[in-house]
Nucleic acid binder design. Structure first.
Lengths: 230, 230
DNA sequence: CATGGACCATTGGTAGCATCTTTCGCAACA
DNA sequence: TGTTGCGAAAGATGCTACCAATGGTCCATG
């Protein structure tokens, strides 16, 4: 923590407070108050508020201060907003909607990767799937998560579409959030391992159709588990 | 809107300069320089840079200034970034990737709307489709665009998934950008009108499968036209 | 040639001031 | 009583000036 990272802390605090609903929409905040509460000067409070304005959490109006906006105005796809909301109430709904988004995007991304990925990426995918299987039987959740994140990120970024690639951060947030919230089984289920391996193989083989179908099945499984488990 | 909007102007200028590639990745900017170029104080330059940092366009490093980041770090899903990039070079690629994203998301959103949309939304969808047909024969592009944007926005926001809803801004940017760039036929093709009407009817009837399939066909058509036309 | 330390440019953060817009309250008037 | 208009105040916007921290750069020394 040698870094000042002062507004990072304040940004996090205020962002959490808003997204959790602790400060309801319509509440007017003032820079003075924010600065005082967090023991920080008006300048940094201003910068934080600018950031929050960029995320659609507040809108600054003269004479009245910074008004907290409603959920419909939020930039819900921004990783920061996602992280805050995953830590607050409504995380179940959050996971559901994000998983639906994954279901829309990841199959097409896998298909894209099957035709566009570099040779290195294909090799790394196979390697990752193999290591996931090994780790799966040992049951080290943290390391397994890292591999899982890496694999989905690699797929999305290899899809040949940077829009899909931009969603890698989102998917990473979802996966880590799911683990952090204890929504993962203590040891990965064998089907999940199989499907990850199948996807990796389909991409390595350059078979877009199989990659898409398998990935769709994979995320569909996650979606089913979510809605039944929660 | 006689807003001061001082940093809005500077933000726009610098954002455009970076996304257009005029200032290549790795270039170090200093607050001092930005302030001087745009005739603005260091304070506002700092706030602008904070915003740009939030968009992933720059990373601030001490002693060295603000380093312009590469495209892979950009927040390419942010409407501001999209608008900037649609105005610069590479707009064709931009439209392609965004249309692929639409192809992933909009069918599922339409299916969601078929089960979740309110009665008012269903009625408005039918009304919109009808008016698009009327306008289509008259050939008023601007008004047609407004209806088109409204219809897609309504579908996405009625999908019961706020993540899809958040993409309404993106789709709106794409549609208006496509028209602004003159990539639309002078008069809407009859098939597009048919498909919009079919989607509206499927949603109104509460038939998710038909809504999804029809929307997929619609966006697929757009995608095909794009890749052949450009 | 490597290494360590001093220098200094540039961001991070604070303080205080002037300005401008918008809202609120109060008073005057119909 | 209800409405209009004016003044005051609150709070964002923007500026300048200042100090602290930090991490490249570069030179001197082994």
């Amino acid at each position: 923590m040698s870094r000042p990272a002062l507004h990072a802390a304040v940004l996090d605090a205020v962002g959490r407070a808003i997204t959790s609903g602790d400060v309801p929409p319509g509440t007017p905040l003032t820079l003075e108050a924010i600065g005082a509460v967090h023991g920080v000067s008006r300048t940094v409070a201003r910068e934080v508020m600018r950031l929050l304005e960029g995320l659609g959490l507040v809108r600054s109006k003269r004479r009245v201060g910074l008004v907290v906006l409603g959920m419909s105005e939020w930039n819900v796809l921004d990783p920061r907003v996602i992280r805050w909301r995953l830590a607050g109430p409504g995380r179940d709904d959050q996971l559901r909607t994000l998983t639906e988004l994954r279901h829309a995007v990841e199959p097409l991304a896998a298909a894209g990767a099957a035709t566009h990925a570099t040779a290195e990426a294909r090799a790394e995918l196979l390697d990752l799937a193999g290591r996931m299987r090994v780790l799966g039987s040992h049951g080290d959740l943290a390391e397994f998560l890292a591999l899982d994140v890496r694999m989905h990120e690699l797929l999305l970024r290899s899809s040949g579409n940077e829009m899909f690639g931009a969603l890698a951060d989102v998917v990473a947030e979802v996966l880590t959030g799911r683990t952090r919230l204890g929504l993962m089984p203590p040891a990965p289920v064998p089907e999940a391992l199989d499907q990850h391996e199948k996807v990796a193989r389909a991409v390595a083989d350059g078979d877009p159709g199989r990659a898409e179908a398998t990935m769709s099945a994979l995320v569909g499984e996650v979606r089913r588990t979510l809605s039944s488990g929660a």
